[in-house]
Write a protein that binds this DNA or RNA. Structure first.
Lengths: 222, 222
DNA sequence: CTATTTAATGACTTACGGTCAGCTATTACG
DNA sequence: CGTAATAGCTGACCGTAAGTCATTAAATAG
């Protein structure tokens, strides 16, 4: 009796179709401007049906965002699945996040909403839980890698891996957010190339975290 | 004939009263949740009147935010109006921004909205112009001070003052944003004290920008 | 073939940002 | 003064969009 199983598959399929439609509309219009009617039309369903699958517009938005998290996680896994030294992999993580920013800008923007609970008015506990675990998976990957860098003697043992991850992330993320919304402004007003700034600051932070012995390896690679 | 002048004053006064009411409501509820009806009631005016003074809810929100910018600017001016060495003043700027974050949290949160044009749906050109010039005044203050630090030989001449300002700001701001919304989360999940992280990372960045001769001065002060 | 459960619909409710015709108070002027 | 002109204010009203729910249609069970 495979009927319940088939129904479950169909339900899952419909959820995906709704996400596809929502993704298109949200990417084009953003959370505020997109309407549930538009998404329903794009999904070739009625608005009421959307609410059978997602509790609110914000939940639907986060549903799409989780896709973006998964993509980033996969890119991180791939970037660290080489046989290079750990310290090089860590550097690659930074480059990968920047590549993600360039190639998946719309997903990158969605993270903002997730990260700022003050913007949430209708997010369900369940959806928030899903997002949190996706988020944790990524942090864990980064922190574990930094820990390995410490264990292998390339990163100073005085560095706390979680703190280090937060610093690197805050810095790069902060600058990428400005690149996203005000790159031109900074260029015109201050004559600053934000991409260069980010690379500089990341290099700076990176440098201070390395042990003396590791410094040569990285220099010779990059 | 002082009637036009008096009327102008009264108009200005009314604008301020509206801002007072809006500030109370926005601080309590945030941009999304606050309603114009609530603000009108708090101001003891009708909703229509609000629109005679501000073009949209978002303009009104930014009107309040500009007050927060002025406060920050004043705090920066005060922090740098001492007779201490420039390099110490620069350090004080960082401390001052953190104090602002702690003491004027609601204003700090408003900056986010200003900085992200993707969130704007009804912001007028005029209001945006006002915000931009307030913003520029602050950047100028910081950048000029860093330039002075370079001129006086405390900051490496290889450092670009605007780039330096952006790096310091991005880093501190990025971490403070996390402190605002997820301090508990980071504490529980990763056992990390974000305040410590910020101080560490700022110290780190700061350190790499100093000339060798300046390093001793700062160490002996802090 | 009928009863029951499940899925989908779209008209409806509610809420809120923004508008505007009209009202009121103030000022200008003969 | 008294009246006309102007400026300031009002709140009922409009349009839009999120979210609901009684009803209908389809699939499954017996």
């Amino acid at each position: 009796m495979g009927i319940p199983e088939r129904k479950e598959r169909e339900k899952e399929h419909r959820r995906e179709e709704i996400l596809n439609a929502a993704q298109g509309v949200f990417f084009e219009k953003g959370l505020q401007t997109a309407t549930m009617d538009e998404i329903a039309e794009a999904a070739e369903l009625s608005k009421g049906t959307l609410y059978l699958y997602y509790k609110s517009k914000e939940d639907l938005y986060l549903g799409v965002m989780i896709r973006g998290m998964d993509i980033l996680h996969n890119m991180f896994v791939e970037a660290t699945s080489t046989d290079e030294p750990t310290i090089v992999k860590i550097k690659h993580l930074g480059d990968t996040y920047y590549r993600y920013f360039k190639e998946h800008r719309s997903f990158f923007r969605m993270f903002n909403f997730f990260l700022n609970p003050l913007l949430h008015t209708q997010v369900s506990e369940e959806m928030m839980g899903l997002c949190d675990s996706g988020n944790q998976k990524i942090w864990k990957l980064v922190i574990d890698l930094i820990q390995r860098g410490i264990d292998e003697g390339d990163i100073r043992s005085t560095v706390d891996p979680a703190e280090c991850a937060i610093i690197l992330w805050s810095n790069s993320n902060g600058i990428m957010m400005r690149m996203d919304t005000q790159e031109e402004y900074f260029k015109k007003m201050l004559g600053v190339d934000l991409e260069r700034v980010m690379q500089k600051s990341m290099a700076m932070l990176f440098e201070t975290m390395l042990t003396d012995s590791a410094r040569q390896k990285v220099v010779s690679v990059s």
